[in-house]
Amino acid sequence: MFAVLKLVCLLFALLFMGAASAREPLKLYMPDAPPLTLHHYEGGHGMVGDVVLAALARLGRLTQIVAEPWPRAQARVTNGRNLLIIPLSRTPEREDQYTWIASIMLLERAFFTLDEPVNSFAEARQRYKRIGVGMGTAQVAILQREGFDDSQIVQLKLGENPARLLTLGRIDAWFTGVPEALYIWEGSEHRRQNLRKSPTLASTGLYLACSKDCDAQLVEALRTAIGELEHEGISQRLREAYMPLQPDP
């Protein structure tokens, strides 16, 4: 079924390529953040990436995927025009900086450790001296809003391996999206160790967003296409193809 969906997306792209070629490709800024977005993976571009690219194909728009450090990508899109970005959490700090097109999925976040998990932010503030989070991600703002000291928040650059840092004891916990943690852990050399997960302590919608200065017709067309994919059940099947294994209780 997943292969069929991929073929459908490709056919959409080919069908509209003639019309799209006359227009400049839309720039889509996205990090390599598996399984949400993937740059170089033969099966697709991730849980959020596949849905957005399928929507763009329905519009007959060619897309240029742009890979930049996540903080820089956000700044470039905010200050640009008609630049798209995924997967962006809709947080209070970002609300006025973008045009929010459509939610692609809900992202649950939790603490991951190798010992007994915490049950609340309050417990985590007391127990953890160093918490790994992705640089420029919503996780940073969430922890700051929950009263964590900046000295407790270790911002990891793209390419740093949080699973390895956790096993080496360089961070006490890893605060991230549940799909990301499970996907990375399953593919790491440390997967035989028992990764422990706290209850879900925060959730935000992951959006396709555009620059603050964004063409209204483009916004409405993409919003409609994403709604159609969701209604037809295609989006759900695309996301499910990347669902990682669940950790042991």
Rank of each mutant, 00 (worst) to 15 (best):
V8R: 14
A225G: 10
A54Y: 05
R72G: 06
W174S: 05
N119R: 14
L238M: 11
L10I: 07
T200D: 09
A3I: 10
L53S: 05
V4H: 13
I86T: 04
G46Q: 07
G147A: 01
P247Y: 02
A54Q: 08
Y207C: 02
R94M: 09
V4W: 14
V178N: 00
E220T: 14
H39Y: 12
C210W: 00
E42H: 11
A22N: 12
D150P: 07
M135W: 04
F2C: 01
E220Y: 08
M30W: 02
E220W: 03
A73H: 11
A173T: 04
G44M: 11
L229Q: 09
L222S: 02
R223C: 03
R58P: 07
L106M: 13
G44F: 08
E24V: 14
A241Q: 12
R81Y: 11
E186P: 02
D172C: 11
P92H: 05
I234N: 00
P247Q: 02
R127M: 06
A22K: 13
G136F: 07
L206Q: 06
P247D: 11
T176C: 04
A181T: 06
Y128K: 02
G44P: 14
A225K: 01
M135Y: 04
T37S: 09
K212T: 03
L201E: 08
G60A: 05
G80I: 10
I234E: 01
Y128W: 12
I86R: 01
L201T: 11
I65E: 05
E220R: 11
Y29W: 07
E146S: 02
P117Q: 06
T224G: 00
D215S: 14
I101W: 00
G159W: 07
Q97D: 15
Q152Y: 04
L229W: 06
L38N: 15
L158S: 15
R237D: 01
L11K: 13
P117F: 04
V118C: 00
R170M: 02
Q236K: 14
D215I: 14
